[in-house]
Write a protein that binds this DNA or RNA. Sequence first.
DNA 1: TCTGGGGTCCTAGGACCC
DNA 2: TCTGGGGTCCTAGGACCC
Length: 418
Amino acid sequence: MIALCDVNNFYVSCERVFNPSLWHRPVIVLSNNDGCAVARSNEVKALGVKMGVPFFQIKNLVKQHNIAVLSSNYALYGDMSQRVDDIIALYSDQVENYSIDECFIRFNGHEHVNLVQHAEKMRQQIWQWLGLPVCVGIAPSKTLAKVANHCAKKLANVPSVFKLDTESKIQKALKNLPVKEVWGIGRQLSKQLNDMGIATALQLRNADLKSMRKRFSVVMERTILELRGIACIEFDADPEKKKQIICTRSFGEKITRLELLKEALAYHVTRACVTLRQQQSQAQSITIGIRTNAFNANSKQYSNSITIKLPQASCQTNLFLKAATQGVEKIFRLGYEYKKAGIVLNDISDAGMIQADLFMPQADDNKALMSVLDDINNRFGKGTLRSAQEGFNEDWVMKSEIKSPAYTTRFNEVIKVI
DNA sequence: TCTGGGGTCCTAGGACCC
DNA sequence: TCTGGGGTCCTAGGACCC
C-alpha cells in the first residue's frame, strides 16, 4: 500500500500557525510578485476564488469579505515542510517527497500494523507539534492514493485518513470523481476524454486499455492501470538530481535598459549555480530568456532566448555569468518594456565527470574559490559575498509587499512571548 | 495599473550511422 | 517502372504536476 500525505492549504496553514488572527478569517497567499492567488483557505475556496486567479481581479471580493492577503514567504514554507518531513520520518523510512507539501509513503515491514491507525497517529503528531492539518490517502497505487486523499479532503463523511482498499470502495470513489481530477489527467486530456463520453474516473478505469494506449500514449495506459490498482508509477524514495535548474522572475517594474537585465540575469545565474553545486553537479549549457509582458495586448511584444554551450561542463558561477552576459547582448532589442528574465541550466552531470578536449588546456576549475564563496554565504547569509555584476539597483526586484516574518529561520523575527 | 515559478516525462521528426 | 532495413541520438514541443 502507498500513502499520500498532504498538508491542507499548505501556505495558508503555515501562516495561520504563527498568526492566530488568521484563524477564523478567509486567507489568500499570493504568488511571487504579488501576482496571483496561489493558496486559499477553505472560506476563500467557498467564495469561488480559483487557483491562480490574478489578484487585481479579486480586489473587490477581498474588501467585501475582509480576506487577509499575504505575499508568499518561502523561507517559512520551506522550513515548515522540513519539519513535516522530520515527523513523517518517525513513521516510515520509505518516503518520496513529491512537492513542498506532499509526499508518498510506503510502509513495507509494517504489514503487522493497522495502517489507518498508524497514519492517524502521524497526522495527530503533525497537528500537535506543528499546528498543520494534513490528510492521508492510502491505496494500492499512487494514483489511487491521490484519489483517497482527495476524498479525505473534500468529502464531509470521509475521515482525514482514508484507505481505499476494497473493490467496492474504489468503485464508489471513482464513480463520483470527474475524470479531470485524476492525477495525470489535465485540461487537454480531460477535454478529449469528455468528447469520447468518458466523464468519470470510473469510466476511464473501465476503458479499453489497448485502444487508449494507441489513441493517447503510454502515460494514459499507466494511469488506467493505476486506477485498476496495478502500481506502475515508480516509487522513488531517492530522487535523482535535478536535470535542469530554472531561475526566472518577473520584475516589480518594467525594465527597458540592457544593463538592468544583465543584473537580474546575474542574480538568477548566481542562484542557479548555488543549487548546481549543492547537488554536486555541473552543467554544460545555459539558456537565457527575456520577455515583455505577454498579458498586455496594448504594448509591443518581444520574447527571445538563446542557448550557449560551454566547451566543458562546469559549476563555476563566473563562467555562466559571462555566458549570460554575452547571451543577453545578442537577444536584447531596444525599445521594449521587459517584464521577465530568466535562465535555465541544462546538460547536467555529476561534478568532476569531465570529457576533456585534447586541444584545450585543462580548465582551471576554481573549486576552492567556489567553496569559499558558498561557505561564507552559508554562514553569513545569502548575498554576503557576490558578483558585482548583480549590481546594486533594486529596480527589478519583485514585489512582496505583505510578507509575514521569517518566524522560524531568522533570530530577530522569532516571535517573542512576553 | 495590476497576471508565478519550477519541475518531469513522452513523442515525433530530423540527422546520422552501417 | 523500379529505390533496404535497422538502428541511435538529439531537439522542440506538448502534456502534465505542485
